[in-house]
Simulated scan of single mutants.
Amino acid sequence: MSISREPLVEVVRAWEGEPGRSARRGCLVVTWEFHDTVVLSAATGVLTRADLRALGAELLAAGVRTIRAWRCNGQRLPGGRCVLPGETHSLWEIDLPALMARSAR
């Protein structure tokens, strides 16, 4: 019988300096929905723009094209657009290749 294994959930941590040897600033959970779509959730601490650009670059290199996140109404996902408004939370999406191309300018 053939099998395949898929990493479905990852934890991303942002560090002050060297990973594991410095203070952790923040973290978030990345859940793979499809081979090219991830959902970000459970973010805590401080994640800088540089941290998010680095994460975007790594996800893009891994083949991700769409990033999703559920946000409380009144909050947005920077670089994203609301695709499913809800009563208390709304689903936002980022077109990752387009966002990374804009941020490279």
Rank of each mutant, 00 (worst) to 15 (best):
S90Q: 02
T88C: 12
R49W: 13
L55F: 00
A62N: 04
T88M: 09
L77K: 00
H35P: 13
R71T: 00
A101L: 01
L8I: 06
M1L: 12
T88W: 10
V46L: 14
L8Y: 15
A23H: 14
S22M: 05
A61W: 04
A43H: 08
R102Q: 15
V64E: 01
C82R: 10
F34A: 11
R105H: 14
G74I: 07
G86Y: 12
T31M: 05
R65N: 03
G45S: 08
A50N: 08
G80H: 10
T31D: 13
R21L: 13
A50E: 14
G86R: 05
L47K: 09
G80T: 11
A54D: 13
S90F: 09
I94F: 02
C27F: 10
E16S: 11
T48L: 03
T44V: 07
R65V: 00
P19C: 07
I67S: 09
S2T: 12
A23P: 10
A54F: 05
A61G: 10
T44L: 05
G17W: 10
R53D: 13
T37P: 06
L96D: 02
G80V: 07
V9K: 07
R105K: 15
R71V: 10
R24M: 14
E93T: 13
A61I: 02
C27G: 04
P78K: 07
P7M: 00
D95S: 00
T37S: 08
L40N: 01
V30R: 09
H35D: 12
R24L: 04
V29W: 05
V9M: 08
I94Q: 03
A101V: 02
I3A: 11
R65S: 14
P97W: 03
W32P: 00
C27T: 07
Q75V: 08
L84R: 13
L52F: 02
A62Y: 02
G45L: 10
R65P: 07
W15G: 00
S22K: 09
E16I: 04
E18V: 12
R53Q: 14
A42T: 05
G74D: 14
R49K: 06
G20W: 07
C82W: 02
V11A: 12
L96C: 02
E58G: 10
C82H: 01
H89C: 12
S2G: 15
G45K: 06
E6N: 11
S22T: 14
V64K: 01
P7E: 15
A104T: 07
R76D: 14
V29D: 01
E87G: 09
A23Q: 14
L28K: 06
L8N: 10
T88E: 06
E6V: 09
D51A: 04
R81G: 07
I67L: 13
L52S: 03
G80K: 06
R105W: 01
A23L: 05
A98G: 11
L40A: 03
R102P: 04
S103K: 01
L77A: 03
V9G: 03
R81W: 08
A54I: 11
L91V: 09
G74T: 01
M100R: 07
L84T: 08
C82D: 04
G80Q: 01
L96A: 04
A43E: 13
A42P: 03
R24T: 08
L60K: 01
A42N: 08
T31R: 13
S4R: 00
W32A: 12
H89L: 11
D36P: 05
E10D: 13
L55C: 05
A50T: 12
I94E: 04
P85H: 05
A61M: 05
A23G: 08
A43F: 00
